[in-house]
Simulated assay, not measured.
Amino acid sequence: MRTTYRVLAWILALEVVVQAAAIAWALFGLSAWIEGGGVLDAAAMEAEPQFDGVVGFMVHGLNGQMIVPVVALVLLVVSFFAKLPRGVAYAAALFVMVLLQVLLGIVSHSIPALGMLHGALALAILVTAVLSARLTAAPASTATPAAMA
């Protein structure tokens, strides 16, 4: 179970990278499309404009609302069986942060300033997932050379 815990934590960290890459692809594609003469208004949004990177918005939304929360939930369940010191606490913190992240992603469309928290929380999730994965590392030997002799 420790290996499963570690793999899930690394997957969660990788998912944050995928999320950042997807939204960057989408926004740079949108920017290039606008610079090339595309117009983004309510009518264009309803018509679903086609530009290089539009898939990034879909990847970011579906991945963030479906895959990331499932990985975080599975990590939380596995944490109870992995018997790692602080493993449950890290997994629970990650699960709560992911739920808050999804909520911020939804609410930020109405209150754009919350988008800053959405971005900052993504970094916190990344760091916590990496620290969580590292919990499974074998502890360094604390024996002194004199004790080994």
Rank of each mutant, 00 (worst) to 15 (best):
74 V>Q: 06
29 G>S: 04
111 I>F: 12
90 Y>H: 14
99 L>R: 03
126 L>V: 12
72 A>E: 02
140 A>L: 14
40 L>A: 05
109 H>W: 10
149 A>V: 07
49 P>E: 02
149 A>L: 07
132 S>I: 05
71 V>D: 06
107 V>S: 01
12 L>M: 07
117 L>G: 09
28 F>I: 11
113 A>G: 07
47 A>W: 04
13 A>Y: 07
54 V>T: 14
138 A>V: 06
57 F>I: 11
101 Q>C: 02
49 P>L: 05
108 S>C: 10
18 V>F: 10
92 A>Y: 01
21 A>K: 07
33 W>Y: 10
65 Q>R: 13
131 L>S: 13
45 M>P: 02
14 L>F: 12
144 T>E: 03
28 F>L: 15
148 M>C: 08
103 L>Q: 04
81 F>L: 14
126 L>H: 09
70 V>L: 15
9 A>L: 09
58 M>E: 13
20 A>Y: 13
53 G>E: 12
15 E>Q: 10
27 L>G: 00
137 A>Q: 04
127 V>L: 15
45 M>K: 13
61 G>H: 09
32 A>M: 11
108 S>Y: 05
114 L>E: 08
134 R>A: 01
4 T>Y: 10
76 L>G: 05
141 S>Y: 00
30 L>W: 07
16 V>W: 01
27 L>T: 14
57 F>H: 11
71 V>G: 02
99 L>G: 15
10 W>Y: 13
47 A>E: 10
112 P>N: 03
57 F>S: 09
102 V>P: 07
43 A>C: 00
124 A>D: 04
38 G>T: 02
19 Q>L: 12
70 V>K: 09
81 F>Q: 15
28 F>Y: 15
111 I>W: 10
32 A>V: 06
91 A>C: 04
96 V>D: 03
117 L>I: 08
66 M>K: 11
58 M>I: 10
138 A>F: 00
125 I>K: 12
15 E>N: 10
60 H>P: 09
86 R>N: 07
127 V>A: 15
102 V>A: 14
45 M>R: 15
50 Q>N: 11
4 T>Q: 11
136 T>P: 03
140 A>M: 10
39 V>S: 10
78 V>C: 02
12 L>R: 01
136 T>K: 02
149 A>E: 07
62 L>H: 09
16 V>S: 06
36 G>S: 10
69 P>I: 06
87 G>W: 00
34 I>D: 02
27 L>Q: 14
45 M>N: 08
30 L>C: 07
12 L>Q: 06
27 L>Y: 11
7 V>K: 00
139 P>T: 00
81 F>I: 10
33 W>V: 02
